[in-house]
Amino acid sequence: MGNNRQLKEAKVLEIKEKMEKAQGVIFAKYQGLTVEQDTNLRKNLREAGVEYKVYKNTLTALAAKELGIEGLESILEGPVSVAFGYEDPTAPARILNNFAKDYKKLELKGGVVQGEVFDTAKVQQLATIPPREVLIAKLLGSFKAPLSNLAYLLNAIKEKKESEEA
């Protein structure tokens, strides 16, 4: 019996470390997915750098409680999978949400993003935020546009003066 307790304590520590390290943790109901669908989902998550696991809800709840995260009781009911996003907090939500659109058996239940508990509606909102790289590209594009316009304007003035002198 002591060995079983040690295994559970080790698993709680593992979950706690993953939750601490992750910027976004999303919980989903996966019951009813075929093996092929689950394999496809895991592949999509892995390609985005998201770790996907299934843990006992009681162990997940204990790990969350040790981290001071409250309010996961209703989320951790029934078979629940956990997706850990370490680099992009929106990645697990985005991938799971897109997958759930095609496969109705997958259901978003909630999540924890940077220490804050999100319900299903907030997770779905989070899923609409573009990836970090896209946001950075948009920001850089907005910086570049005025500079490009200024360069175009200065060039047009220069060409106009040259044509007047000729």
Rank of each mutant, 00 (worst) to 15 (best):
L41D: 02
P79M: 13
G78L: 12
V50E: 00
S81P: 15
Q31H: 12
A63W: 05
L62Q: 13
E36D: 09
G32N: 07
E36S: 07
N3H: 15
V54E: 03
F27L: 06
E73M: 11
T34E: 09
E17Q: 15
K8N: 08
N44A: 08
Q6N: 10
L33V: 05
E17V: 11
L45F: 02
N44V: 10
V50Y: 01
T34L: 04
N4G: 10
E66T: 11
G49C: 00
E73A: 15
N57H: 02
Y55H: 05
L7M: 14
E17H: 10
R42S: 00
D38C: 02
L72C: 13
L59K: 01
I69P: 02
F27Q: 02
A48Y: 06
D38E: 09
T34Q: 07
N4C: 11
L59E: 03
K56I: 00
V80I: 15
L41G: 08
K8I: 14
E20P: 10
L67S: 04
N40G: 12
D38Q: 06
A28C: 06
A63L: 09
L7Y: 14
A28I: 04
L67T: 07
A10T: 15
G49E: 03
E47Y: 03
R46H: 08
N44F: 05
L7W: 12
Q23R: 09
Y30M: 00
E47V: 07
V25F: 00
N44K: 07
L41E: 05
I75V: 15
I26N: 00
R42L: 01
N44R: 12
R42A: 08
Y55G: 04
V50P: 00
E70S: 15
Q6P: 12
T39D: 03
K16E: 14
N40Y: 14
G32K: 08
A61D: 11
E47I: 04
V35K: 04
S81Y: 02
Q31G: 10
K18S: 13
G68D: 13
E9Y: 11
N3G: 12
L41F: 05
K16M: 13
K18G: 12
D38R: 00
